[in-house]
């Protein structure tokens, strides 16, 4: 059963052109779906639409976002907030800005467990401690008392991952969770997310522009171009034989982990022109 089903979602900048065009995608319970596309394709917008954090300038013009059987777009704002807060979480892109600089790490993990989900303070604190251990932070009790500026980017991303898993959400949206990190740290964080996902059985919508990452952590993927899904397939099918010419070109433009020095083909102009025409008129 699909936990998340985005149906024919369209959005635009108020008074401007379309950002999302008839987007449909599903995330099954426990599935990891990659959402790939070049920068500006609208990947983050989809994640934000699901979580209810679209910028004020962006409006949804049609479609449904069905979460666990309920169309979020028909819910009143407060009910939507509560539903999303209880069953979804976000692993943000930039760990340096995603933690409140003036508050200790501990309360940033525990506060919403207490405030929103009604846990006791003690239970929330125990949970935070256990999770920091799970994301392999040494001396977690100490870290819980520290402020964000005392920690490295990699540490902060581990904390944000721990926080995302804290309330056992059904779905996590990870928006390019390693892009802002050092290359050496990227791999560790990726492994960590994959491990926690597997252990907790959480569905994951993994936003990235890196096909190499997709091949490692995802089962299925949606390819987005200019706000439109141009391909939806399993990772095995995609890397074997991409259906869409744009996907094929994207794949050819991606370095291979097995042979990084193999000649890379930039996406040909003709392919771009064709996909653009298809997206804008199809």
């Amino acid at each position: 059963m699909s936990f998340l089903e985005v149906r024919n979602l369209s959005a635009r900048v108020k008074g401007g052109g379309p950002l999302l065009r008839d987007v449909s995608l599903t995330v099954e319970v426990g599935e990891v779906r990659g959402l790939v596309g070049e920068s500006g394709a609208g990947k983050s917008m989809i994640g934000k639409a699901v979580l209810g954090i679209l910028p004020k300038a962006v409006e949804i013009t049609g479609g449904q976002i069905v979460l666990d059987g309920t169309d979020l777009l028909t819910l009143p704002p407060a009910a939507r907030r509560v539903k999303v807060g209880a069953s979804c979480a976000l692993i943000p892109q930039d760990p340096l800005t995603a933690l409140n600089p003036s508050r200790r790490i501990g309360v940033q993990i525990t506060d919403r467990l207490v405030d929103i989900l009604g846990w006791t303070r003690q239970r929330a604190e125990d949970r935070a401690l256990a999770l920091l251990t799970e994301v392999q932070i040494t001396d977690p009790a100490r870290v819980l008392r520290q402020y964000p500026h005392e920690l490295s980017g990699g540490m902060r991303q581990r904390i944000l991952i721990a926080s995302a898993f804290a309330a056992e959400p059904k779905l996590i949206v990870a928006d390019e969770p390693t892009t802002a990190l050092d290359v050496t740290v990227q791999k560790q964080i990726l492994k960590l997310i994959a491990a926690l996902q597997a252990r907790h059985g959480t569905a994951l919508l993994f936003v990235t522009h890196d096909l190499g990452v997709v091949s490692k952590v995802c089962q299925n993927l949606s390819v987005l171009y200019a706000g439109k899904v141009v391909e939806d397939s399993t990772v095995a099918d995609f890397f074997g034989a991409p259906k869409h010419p744009y996907s094929a070109a994207l794949l050819a433009a991606t370095p291979k982990y097995t042979d990084p020095s193999a000649g890379l083909q930039p996406v040909p102009d003709a392919v771009i022109a064709a996909v653009r025409a298809e997206v804008e008129h199809g």
């Binding site: 209810g52 954090i53 999303v84 979804c88 995603a98 405030d115 989900l117 944000l160």
Partner: peptide, 22 residues
């Protein structure tokens, strides 16, 4: 507009609570 405020919104905090406490 900052990321930690947006993050708090996804956690279920109301707009007023986000402004006040974050």
């Amino acid at each position: 507009h900052l990321d930690y405020v947006t993050l708090a919104r996804t956690q279920g905090y109301s707009e007023a609570k986000v402004i006040w406490s974050q």
